[in-house]
Every structure is written in structure tokens, then in C-alpha cells.
Design a binder for these strands. Structure first.
Length: 235
DNA sequence: TACCAGGTCCTCG
DNA sequence: CGAGGACATGGT
């Protein structure tokens, strides 16, 4: 079932190109096959924090500002004043909190991995998650996003869209781990697949399976309990 | 104008 | 545990 849904979503929306990173000499993140060096890995991690409960557009603006100030850099983040950092990432919302979160993350890397993010990301997925969760400001979703999109290890990222979509389709479960297990048990353990699938669910949730769903436009309405219920009611 | 966006932490029962 | 509030900008 989950594979069928994936195929329908992919046919409908096409590849989503996550996660965009900034190439050398540029300011804007673009898709280029994911992070390829330490600076880009760090940028993805910053991006996951900046995008918390915020549109990617707003997070992206903050990344451009960080790039302008050469701040995708652990030592420089630790050196800059909170207030100044907060102003630089202002567009991402919750900027005071997020400034602290970026610092917490960099502080952790500096103290435990000699400031080398690749050493952190080299941990196996399970260890990596424990360590990431221990950092204040990084919760389950952000941790899994880092594991999937920065470390490129196969874990399924569950977000608000995933919950809403799965609940409507008929899987009445809201607990993060239960939902994650559902995907893990019913799909091949593939980083590429999990990358694309999560991105597709975001696209579906953002444009169609909204709070007020547009079932008429939905590519997976034929698999959906919610849509069935609505149809029965109408007929 | 109000609502929502690629959440997390803290506090309180 | 789980609910509820705080955090905050920018787009529709």
C-alpha cells in the first residue's frame, strides 16, 4: 500500500530534489545531489533547525544571510553574539530560539567532535539519533532529518504532514515512533526512497491534503479512507 | 484579517 | 504521559 501511494505521488509530482545546499561561490541553496563536503553537511543541519515550523522560503532566506556573512562555520557561530545571529536569521521566525539552537549544535560539535561534523555523522543511525536528540533544540523530526538528509542514512522522517495524511488515509496513530515503524516495516530500507517519499508527502500536504483537503485534486484519493467517507456521505 | 508554514521545549495536572 | 502555551516572520 505505501509503495503504491509512493508511486502515485511520484508520478503526479515528480522528483522533489531535497535537500538543497549552497555551492562554493554562491549564496542560494540549490539541489545538487545533497551535501558533498563538511560545509554543506553543516548547512543542511542548520537548515533543518531554521526550517522548524516555518516555510522553507523563510528558512532559505536565513541561509542566504548566513552565507553572506560566512557563518556556515562552527567557530564563527560560536563567536558571534546571540543578538547579532538572531538578526541575521530573522526571516526564519523564532529567531532568538533558533540562534540558541544553532549555537547549541555547534557547541556540541566543538566539544565532542573537534568541530568536525563528518565525525558526528559517521555514527550509525541509532547512535547518531541519540546524540542529536540530546542537544537542546533538536527533537525527533529534526534529528531524523539530519540523519536522512545530512548523513544520508535511511530513516523515515515523520512530520505534521505525514501524520495528517496517514491519519486520513486510515492509519489512526499519532505517536512518532509508531508512524516511523509503519514506513520502516513496509518499505525497502532505502535512503533514496525515504528522501523522496518524505518530500512528496510534504508536497501533498502543503498543496492538497491541507487542513481543508482538496480531495478532487488528490492523486491518492482512491487509497484514502477520508475520501471514501466523504464520498459515501455525499452519495 | 486570520491562518499557516518541512517543531521543540517547558510547565502543569 | 498529554495538553497547552511560548516562540515570530512572511506569504496568501
Amino acid at each position: 500500500m505505501l509503495e503504491i501511494i509512493y508511486n502515485k505521488l511520484y508520478s503526479h509530482f515528480g522528483p522533489q530534489h531535497w535537500w538543497p545546499v549552497t555551492e562554493k561561490g554562491k549564496l542560494n541553496p540549490e539541489y545538487s545531489g545533497g551535501p558533498k563536503n563538511e560545509r554543506q553537511q553543516l548547512e543542511v543541519c542548520f537548515g533543518t533547525i531554521l526550517a522548524q515550523n516555518t516555510s522553507w522560503k523563510n528558512a532559505e532566506k536565513a541561509i542566504v544571510e548566513l552565507n553572506k556573512n560566512n557563518l556556515i562555520n562552527i567557530k564563527k557561530i560560536l563567536k558571534i553574539k546571540n543578538k547579532k545571529l538572531a538578526q541575521i536569521i530573522k526571516s526564519s521566525g523564532y529567531y532568538n530560539q533558533k540562534a540558541k539552537k544553532l549555537k547549541n549544535f555547534c557547541d556540541f560539535l566543538s566539544k565532542n567532535y573537534d568541530g568536525k561534523i563528518s565525525l558526528l555523522l559517521n555514527n550509525n543511525a541509532e547512535e547518531l539519533k541519540k546524540k542529536l536528540i540530546s542537544i537542546n533544540g533538536i527533537g525527533q523530526e529534526t534529528a531524523d532529518s539530519i540523519i536522512l538528509y545530512a548523513a544520508k542514512k535511511p530513516v523515515f522522517v515523520v512530520d505534521a504532514y505525514t501524520k495528517r495524511i496517514l491519519n486520513r488515509i486510515g492509519y489512526k496513530e499519532t505517536e512518532y515512533n509508531k508512524l516511523q515503524t509503519l514506513f520502516a516495516k513496509n518499505l525497502p530500507n532505502s535512503e533514496r526512497l525515504f528522501n523522496e517519499y518524505h518530500a512528496l508527502l510534504v508536497e501533498l500536504g502543503k498543496g492538497i491534503c491541507k487542513k481543508q483537503p482538496l480531495c478532487g485534486k488528490c492523486p491518492v484519493s482512491r487509497c484514502c479512507g477520508y475520501y471514501e467517507a466523504v464520498s459515501l456521505k455525499r452519495d
